[in-house]
Design a protein around this nucleic acid. Structure first.
Lengths: 236, 236
DNA sequence: CGATAGTTTGATATCCTTCAAAACCTGTGG
DNA sequence: CCACAGGTTTTGAAGGATATCAAACTATCG
């Protein structure tokens, strides 16, 4: 429960009542094994899932069989916030590690946020941070070459994990393959591999055994053109 | 005022009080000439702007001087919803035509949505539709070649305009240049031009004098892999 | 009518993909 | 403990899509 509340309180101050009623609505938890879909494209779920532990990826299925990744989900993120206002999912959320989610029913969450405007504002704010992240991805895919593009994603993941206290020293765990890097970046895994090699040889970062080591964050951010502003919410 | 209310009511039913108090908060309007910034990256505006008439583009400035476009704004869209919960803008909104916006102060809108949860929910829902559109752009930029990519954007704009009743027959007005198409698609204007030529020769669509003519929407959507689901909100 | 912005076309360069295969892990059953 | 299978990483060679550079053409607007 905590990661969700912590996330919501970044932007909006909640009352004790807000917090406890949120806990009540998200009372039950559920576990998904690595590789399973938490929610599936075209489904019409009755539950809203909030990430408590583990990693997931949002992806869309394409006719050619590829599954581009549009976001990485970490503790505190809602898997399927849209479900409140619209039935049909337009993406899947797949567990990249074993995942623990808190679940709320659609109806209960509609009722809760209909009674507690601060909570509705907090969720609104969280949706806007997600939108800002999507904008950064659009720029990344549209205007940067593979080299800066990969560096940018590494900077983003490093920054987000660091806010969750999941970076120790210069290392953090990214539980996915070069193939999945490619799905998120619009690159083939072959090319991801070559770019990783270059970044490693240039002593900026390395990715080995699912752990990312940032060797020179200043140079890496310069190469990426990374500005962490879009991730940070100021308290209102 | 109407386009904003119409937009919000797609997902959430509002009371008469909701509507009139929203009108009161967004009482004043302002006009921006073509080419002007409605809001500017890194600014800390006190006002929130809602599009009433005209077109704008959301763009981010890059060190190399380019200004990639991350979204097109039409009547009913908020220009800078984030402003409620976070001070610093991470993008600019530039008027592509003369634009009329309704303006609300940040404080008044925070207060209003803090008192009227239905409104907060409605804005939350609108933010989610925007996020869904961003996801579609991410997939478009990441996985499709220039040909399908341009077709997909044309399909999206056609569908959105058609919901606003701005399509007459098979024609609609897109008030921007091939250069700006390119900025939205991550392509050079030269290449946009070549792809437009091909789509025209293949009798799917043409873009001439700022008007888009869709000649064969079925074939165009097939080429684009376009599924309009992400634009449509079901009533909750 | 001239100036400026936008469109069109061609030639060449670059980046990334595709195809292919070898090397390397990691877990599993014998 | 070993052998093996499947997935992942690494490297090479060749092809294709898109960028870049350059110039002519066309609209638009004072």
């Amino acid at each position: 429960m905590n990661p969700l509340i912590a996330r919501l309180e970044i932007a909006v101050r909640l009352s004790d009542d807000d917090r406890t009623s949120l806990q009540a609505v998200f009372a039950s938890t559920r576990r998904f094994e690595k590789g399973r879909d938490v929610v599936r494209e075209a489904d019409q779920p009755d539950q809203v899932y909030a990430m408590l532990d583990g990693w997931a990826a949002r992806c869309k299925g394409l006719p050619d069989g590829s599954r581009p990744i549009t976001a990485f989900l970490m503790p505190g993120d809602l898997c399927n916030g849209e479900t409140l206002f619209r039935r049909r999912m337009d993406y899947s959320a797949v567990a990249l590690t074993p995942v623990i989610v808190a679940t709320a029913t659609r109806d209960a969450l509609i009722r809760l946020t209909g009674e507690r405007p601060r909570l509705a504002q907090a969720f609104w704010s969280a949706a806007q941070v997600e939108a800002a992240t999507s904008r950064a991805w659009i720029v990344n895919l549209g205007r940067r070459g593979a080299y800066s593009r990969l560096a940018h994603l590494a900077c983003e993941l490093h920054a987000r994990l660091s806010r969750l206290d999941l970076v120790s020293g210069s290392e953090c765990n990214l539980p996915f393959t070069q193939e999945q890097f490619g799905q998120a970046l619009g690159l083939t895994s072959v090319h991801v591999n070559r770019v990783l090699k270059r970044l490693r040889e240039e002593r900026m970062m390395q990715f080995h055994n699912r752990t990312l080591t940032v060797l020179d964050i200043d140079r890496l951010r310069a190469v990426a053109g990374f500005d962490p502003a879009y991730l940070q919410e100021d308290v209102a």
